[in-house]
Design a binder for these strands. Structure first.
Lengths: 155, 155
DNA sequence: CTCTGTGCAAACACTTTGCAGCTAA
DNA sequence: TTAGCTGCAAAGTGTTTGCACAGAG
């Protein structure tokens, strides 16, 4: 119905869209309406949407877009550093029988998860405004990167 | 707490298998060969296997087991507290355009991811033995639990 | 005009569900 | 014996790939 005016913060959105155009140009990518709409949808939410959720949002203003385009565009955005995949999301469920306190490092290439234990990371303090609002069931320090084996294979 | 015996030596494994039997009985579950084999496979690895990986391992000693049984057994194990799902794993990929430093809380019920920012969690120090062995690309503090909305709906 | 990007459909990977026969207690 | 468990198959999600045409540069 009523179109939301971006009177909020004046030109912040415009500014981000411009820097997006620059990033695309630098990477030799075309600025298609679909691409811009996907990026805009991602900027306008403070959620961390799945591809499906972005798709629903973009479709409100761009009814003919396909889910595949959204998926591919999001992937493209991560490749040029305009978007990020939330750490740990998007792979098969992993299991663990280790009851001891420990932390995880996950290799983004081979998906291997490696335990490590660093005493100061046990029992990370929960900020009060979190514990008031949510019931925290687990808390951990989580690293991602390239593991030793994959690093060797790359060279 | 004394932890002289590190690794899965014979006695420790037996002890863990026994406590597993106790947990099963307490929950009214039968000790089937498949169930025991899945749990044993999980204990014997220091990896954090996917259901598929557990399946491959169990199949070495129990060739007739099906992947479905492994999947269901792993789920059962988490329900009685004999195994854990690695935090963050197993759901659809989530995207993020937020460049500012922040942390994530994920609701295990509605899968919503909520940002929060707690200064001391920015730039968590990377232990030297990690940075020597791996190339760390991202590091974060990650909480899971029940969010305010879901908590309200439960009461 | 050229070549990337899009939309569609099919393939793929992972997980869940329904059912019939089997087995631990 | 019998409630619960397993194996199979099919259906349900989420993601990727191959291809022909459309449109940005």
């Amino acid at each position: 119905m009523s179109k939301k005016d971006n009177g909020e913060k004046g030109g912040l959105l415009t500014e981000k869209m411009n820097s997006f155009r620059v990033k695309c140009h630098a990477a030799g990518l075309k600025i298609t309406p679909q691409r811009a709409a996907v990026y805009k949808a991602l900027l306008e939410t403070n959620q961390h949407p799945s591809a499906e959720a972005v798709f629903e949002k973009v479709r409100e203003v761009f009814p003919s877009i396909s889910l595949d385009t959204v998926n591919r565009t999001l992937l493209t955005l991560t490749e040029i550093g305009a978007a990020f995949v939330v750490a740990g999301s998007g792979d098969a469920r992993r299991y663990d029988a280790n009851l001891k306190n420990h932390q995880h490092f996950k290799c983004v290439k081979c998906k291997r998860i490696i335990d490590f234990h660093h005493e100061p990371f046990d029992n990370v303090p929960i900020p009060k405004y979190i514990s008031k609002r949510f019931t925290v069931l687990s808390r951990t320090v989580y690293f991602e990167g390239i593991c030793d084996l994959c690093r060797k294979n790359l060279s």
